[in-house]
Amino acid sequence: MTLRGRLSFLHPAVWLPLVLMVIVLGLLWQWGADRMPYLLPPLGDVGATLVEDADYYLTNALVTLQEAVGGLVLGGLTAFVLAVIVSEFTLARRAIMPVAVVLNVTPLVAIAPALVVAFGFGAAPKLIVTGLICFFPILINTSVGLRAVPLPVLQVYRTVHASRLETLWYLRVPIALPYLFAALRIVFPLSVVGAVVAELSAAGSSEGLGTAISRASSMNQLAAVYASIAILALLGSLLLLAVTVLERRLLHWHETQTAR
């Protein structure tokens, strides 16, 4: 980053709008909390429980993060492998894609309880729900990307008789990467949603931020509910940040990264 780039980060025009927005939202919240104490906890209480029970939140956040990342890896890898199969074999595409579409339009919130019945209160249903939520965007984007090699490029390598595997590895996969990352930007934060939905559906599970929320709300501990929500928002943002950093590294050649 240039010196000017770093300085501009400190410029009030960059940070002031957000700071003002946060202050306005905070004041509105406090005003609401004064009037409706049974609906909104004062921000001070939320902060206090976060500090006092830091261990409790950290443990549960790690559980949810593990479920999210685990499901992400599971769903992402399955989707990527299927995308390769689907883009290479027309017959496989005809068999797999309709099933994938039906799976995608079925509400996940409806599938989750059924999975809990089938797989119990352990990690399995959470990984499956999170995996399912990550699966479809990666499958669709990657299979489109794998077939996005420009015709002249394909022709050049066909005249030197590049094998299918060589074409896949040297041409199709690199060209699909920007498409894959567009999907990852969506599913990284979405994986937290999957993990929480799974936790909320498993009434008897003992850990995770989703469980913490359902437990705290049943005991009317509003501050704890919002503290957990805040951590979930933070988790989602961190995952988005991670995928953005990864994308900058891997796709420095792509126009979305060079055009600023």
Partner: peptide, 16 residues
């Protein structure tokens, strides 16, 4: 093509 006897230069550079 299988024996790499051919070279092709298309209308666009087609570089990666």
């Amino acid at each position: 093509a299988a024996a790499k006897m051919l070279g092709l230069v298309p209308q666009t550079p087609a570089l990666l």
